[in-house]
């Protein structure tokens, strides 16, 4: 199916972007989008429990923690 190919390309593109990019903020945004796309892949694989958990845990709470840590690091660097 076309959907599977598009989702796979999106996953690979996002992860290559995460490995190649250097700007931390855009890497975190890439990671949050990666979690959302992975949730769609879990739905395609008939694992609905995993889709719900991935959206809430992998993308939501981890994304919030990462953004908060980046803000903390920026503030520490500004104080120096």
């Amino acid at each position: 199916m076309l959907v599977d190919i598009l989702l796979s390309i999106a996953l690979l593109w996002l992860s290559i972007g995460i490995v190649l990019k250097d700007d931390l903020f855009s890497v975190v945004v890439y990671f949050i989008v990666f979690g959302m796309i992975l949730a769609l892949v879990w739905v395609r694989l008939f694992a609905f429990d995993l889709a719900l958990a991935e959206v809430a845990l992998g993308s939501g709470i981890t994304g919030a923690l990462l953004l908060d840590t980046i803000a903390f690091i920026k503030m520490q660097k500004r104080e120096d």
Binding site: F48, D49, A53, A56, I61
Partner: peptide, 13 residues
């Protein structure tokens, strides 16, 4: 589909 873990993640959010 559902259960304690998913519900707890939603509530934590």
């Amino acid at each position: 589909s559902g259960g304690a873990f998913v519900a707890s993640a939603l509530l934590a959010g």
